[in-house]
Amino acid sequence: MSKVVVITSGKGGVGKTTTSANIATGIAQQGKKTVAIDFDVGLRNLDLVMGCERRVVYDFVNVIRNEAKLQQALIRDKRVENLYILPASQTRDKDALDPEGVGRVIEELKQMGFEYIICDSPAGIEKGAQMAMYFADEAIVVTNPEVSSVRDSDRVLGLLAAKTSRAELGGPAIRTHLLLTRYSPLMVKRGEMLSVGDVLELLGIPLLGVIPESKAVLQSSNKGAPAILDETTDVAQAYLDVVFRYLGQERQHRFIEEEKRSFLGRLFG
């Protein structure tokens, strides 16, 4: 059985690509054959975040246009077994992805035995984002605790319910999960940021996890190694929780409350 999971948000820059890279890596580490597809045509960057940018020869659009075989475009991750990346194209042609082509590639990935097909959506609610969600079985809606992000997430929930293959064919609704990222418990405590509770109340979908705002994300993108690979950081712990929760294990929610830090902790932390 394969699961197609779209990582989507509406608003740009909220952490979709970071989340796609970390979740795909985490699921593959659990022994599941996983592929992360970059749907951000023209602005590809999943390969950069995953550190395989120099190994890109062919891309998603080449495969759709029959210029290359899927096997030629798939990049096998060097660090984690069972993990593959299908990079986006640099083409400026926004119509490069069409439902027939995308559907054919996803079907072929299923035939190849991929258990999890993670679709990293571009920002917006236009065609690109709709292509990324069209064949999804499940959606992880990445939201920042911020007014425009929450509003856009709500719009995306509307699209997921109407403009997808499942919706058009009258199949079961896409399962949706909320992932709140770039969360700062200290700012929430000071009343300067929407709380998890606020966002949950507004969007009304189940919470998959909370990812704290952390400098570890920048460091990992500098290195081209998803943060989840270095278990010592808060972000890695948060994404690991998300992966285990997603795969069906019970995990307490963390990183919601501000951690008490001693004077020495602050000095050496």
Binding site: L48, G51, E53, R54, L218, Q219, S220, S221, N222, K223, G224, R266, L267, F268, G269
Partner: peptide, 27 residues
């Protein structure tokens, strides 16, 4: 560790980022 970071020069991950970028940008 924040206390010791103060004495370090450039953070290591930034120079890695620059190396990776110069290669991919040229390509």
């Amino acid at each position: 560790m924040a206390f010791f970071d103060y004495f370090k020069r450039a953070p290591k991950s930034a120079s890695l980022a620059k190396d990776r970028l110069s290669i991919i940008v040229a390509r």
